[in-house]
Simulated assay, not measured.
Amino acid sequence: MRERRWRPGAPLDVRLTLAPHRRGSGDPAWQATPDGAIWRTSRTPEGPGTLRVLVDARAAEVVGQAWGPGGPWLLETLPRLLGADDPVADFRVLMERLEAGGHTLIRELASRHSGLRLSVTARVFEALVPAVLEQKVVGREAWRAWRWLLRAYGEPAPGPAPSGMRVFPEPEVWRRIPSWDWHRAGAEAVRARTIVNAALHAGKLESAAPAEADRLLRALPGVGVWTSAETRQRAHGDPDAVSVGDYHLPSLVGWSLTGRKTDDAGMLELLAPYRGQRHRVTRLLELGGRRPPARGPRMSVRDYRSF
């Protein structure tokens, strides 16, 4: 076991910052334990690793403990994972430039969640796979597939991780998953093909500069604006990556800012004053925005598996 202590130097909500990497309850790659620690596994450039993150409130430090061949890399990149590279200062400057009498809700949410930071994992393919699984389905369906695939093909987490934790498989493993196991996981052929094809280009995705990420991701068959944004939000901490095409987000943004539902075009118009920080704003609205009444049709949970 290796350990690193890091002092953020500003308010930091560790759980809130790491929450986007959790794919539903029972995620084999992300667990929170009763002692307040968050456990996370990753396929690092050095191999599989397990990271335990705990806050030492007395010392005002974050304690990272890591196991496995990827442990040193996880500790080296711990500050980035916890938002050390987050351009939150740019957001503050932007809000100062906007008219003081407006944007009240965003200001209130930013103050209430001052410890929120945008996390960077620097693992693009690892963020892309669950994003593809979440395409055009409800969360429960996507998370069920994620759990099944990691339990079937992921390695056991190094170290004393909570029971059942697994490490994201290598790209070669994703390419070899047979069609019947995609079916058992509940992922239909379209999403399976998208992931298998992306695995062929995983090396290029990982080595590309963040500025090139959107172009490379959207060049992959089956990866559109929404999937690229969801991937870049987590892998690169992109503060402006808007999840255009999301089933719920336009209504949330519209209702929160105007009291009316809207579509993607309307959402982008409402978010225009926050250009450069639009993902951060939608993240704040997800945490405390006003949701419209749940009167419309809901997406149903599909099940492609046979029993």
Rank of each mutant, 00 (worst) to 15 (best):
Q31A: 15
R2N: 09
T104Y: 00
W39K: 09
A59Y: 01
A202P: 10
L81Q: 14
P156A: 08
L81F: 08
G237Y: 12
H103P: 00
T282D: 06
R290E: 10
E286P: 00
G237C: 06
F168W: 05
G64P: 09
W146Y: 08
A142E: 01
E286Y: 01
A161F: 12
Q65D: 03
G254L: 10
R107F: 09
T121L: 08
G71K: 02
P20T: 03
E46M: 13
D27T: 05
D240G: 07
G288M: 05
R117S: 03
E3R: 11
S207Q: 15
A294Q: 14
D303G: 06
T258K: 12
S179A: 15
L287W: 08
L94N: 06
L51V: 10
P34C: 00
G154L: 05
R7Y: 04
T258F: 03
V196R: 15
P48Q: 12
W6M: 07
D90A: 15
R260G: 03
L216A: 13
T282R: 04
R275D: 05
I106D: 04
R80T: 01
D35L: 10
R123M: 04
E76F: 00
E286Q: 14
R58T: 01
A189E: 15
P20Y: 06
D35H: 09
A187L: 06
R58G: 08
G296I: 00
W67P: 05
E188K: 13
S119I: 08
P292M: 05
T41V: 07
S207F: 06
D13Q: 06
L133S: 07
E212F: 10
R234N: 12
V14R: 13
R218N: 12
R234Q: 12
P156T: 08
A185R: 05
A187R: 01
T33Y: 02
L149C: 03
P292Q: 06
A110W: 08
S163D: 14
R7H: 07
A100Y: 00
R7I: 13
H248E: 11
L109H: 03
G159A: 10
G49T: 07
A208Y: 12
R280I: 08
G203C: 12
G159K: 02
H236F: 15
A272M: 05
R147A: 03
I106Y: 04
D240Y: 04
I195E: 09
S42P: 00
L18D: 11
P169T: 04
A59R: 14
L16F: 04
R218T: 15
P11N: 08
T194S: 15
R298S: 09
E286S: 05
G70H: 14
P239Y: 11
A89M: 01
L75S: 04
N197T: 13
I38E: 12
G259Y: 05
A219N: 14
L74S: 10
A211H: 13
R2E: 12
G83E: 11
W146D: 00
D181M: 10
G164S: 10
D246V: 03
T41R: 04
L116S: 05
I177Q: 11
R7P: 05
V167I: 02
